[in-house]
């Protein structure tokens, strides 16, 4: 028996092919062709995704006259880092960066902490009206924040908690321009895409076996300490992913930032205003009345955008597993 096996291995490929009456060759060719096609497809799509970034990088190192030169496509002839200094100046980069890190970090932490509590509550407890509240979570996912943005705008312009403040002061407090409203909303799970986090965290907790929880109860753990000491450590992968998503989306969000944080300089907002700033800069400082040219403005936008996403890219390089693998390989049933 083992002799036959050894003999099989020693047989050449063509020998085996002949014995299987051509099946082996067919299979091999099919597989190789498939692999080549797949490699081409993947390479093409990866290039498709990366190309705009590469393009921006090369443009951001060009001098203005290079932009008009048709023979220059990707390698700048007059290499310069001046664009970066100008963009940093226009966005007040250092200060804005610190602001953005602070806000994104605190908001993401707050959102994930609260969403974890809520997701755990939905996954592990039975209580009356649970279905109804969960439909509300789905509603939060579905309702675009733009629908209620008008009234949120007014809500925080004349802020009031059930009419208490109004009774004392005669009118509500103007909370627009302060950061407080957004922190309040985050604490109430109403921030950007919070419904989605609740949903994902709930799906994760539902998959943890019930026996684990029961064993903890039998050993004298209370409800909260079971949560903190048994369940939370298990949930680290999903929580890191949600935290990373939350952090990144907060970083690039301009909708809520525009609505609530008018006075705080954040990268996302600065980036959306950079085109006007370049125009002003060129007409006031350089003294060119017509303002910045189209090509130069777009070059500055590319530079600014790179400066906004570079911290995220660095984060992504280090925490790639957290973004991708922890969700996709844990096999959560959505």
């Amino acid at each position: 028996m083992s002799d036959a096996a050894v003999k099989m291995e020693k047989e050449s490929f063509w020998e085996r092919n002949r014995k299987s009456s051509g099946y082996l060759l067919k299979k091999m060719t099919r597989q190789t062709v498939y692999k080549i096609i797949r490699a081409f497809l993947l390479f093409g799509m990866c290039f498709l995704i990366l190309q705009p970034i590469l393009n921006k990088i090369s443009v951001s190192f060009m001098e203005e006259r290079d932009l008009y030169n048709n023979t220059i496509i990707s390698v700048p002839e007059h290499f310069t880092t001046q664009n970066y200094f100008l963009a940093a100046d226009l966005m007040d980069y250092g200060k804005t960066l610190i602001n953005t890190i602070g806000v994104s970090l605190t908001i993401a932490l707050l959102q994930i902490a609260v969403c974890t509590l809520v997701g755990y509550g939905f996954a592990r407890f039975e209580f009356p009206l649970k279905k109804m509240w969960f439909v509300c979570v789905l509603l939060v996912i579905i309702v675009p924040p733009q629908t209620i943005s008008t009234s949120l705008y007014l809500h925080f312009r004349y802020f009031d908690i059930f009419g208490i403040i109004g009774a004392i002061r005669g009118e509500g407090i103007n909370l627009r321009g302060s950061k407080l409203p957004y922190y309040l909303m985050s604490a109430g799970c109403m921030g950007l895409k919070n419904g989605l986090y609740i949903y994902m965290i709930r799906q994760f907790f539902r998959n943890i076996p019930k026996e684990l929880e029961e064993a903890a109860y039998v050993d004298g753990c209370g409800i909260f300490s079971t949560f903190a000491r048994i369940m939370l450590p298990d949930a680290t992968p999903i929580l890191t992913s949600c935290f990373l998503f939350s952090f990144v989306w907060e970083w690039t969000d301009s909708f809520y930032a525009k609505m609530f944080m008018g006075n705080t300089r954040l990268l996302a907002r600065e980036l959306s205003m950079i085109a006007d700033r370049v125009n002003q800069y060129v007409s006031l400082v350089v003294g060119d009345r017509t303002g910045a040219s189209v090509a130069y403005t777009s070059c500055m936008i590319s530079t600014g955008m790179l400066m906004v996403i570079v911290p995220l890219l660095i984060l992504y390089l280090f925490a790639q597993k957290g973004f991708v693998e922890s969700i996709s390989s844990s096999g959560i049933k959505m």
């Binding site: 407890f125 209580f127 309040l184």
Partner: peptide, 29 residues
């Protein structure tokens, strides 16, 4: 009953947030 109460405690932030920042603005809007 205790578990039901605990469950409500866990989702309390959501309920408050939902009523204050979702239902009220939606109705108002």
């Amino acid at each position: 009953k205790r578990k039901a109460i605990a469950g409500y405690m866990f989702i309390l932030p959501f309920i408050v947030g939902f009523l204050a920042f979702m239902i009220q603005p939606m109705a108002q809007s």
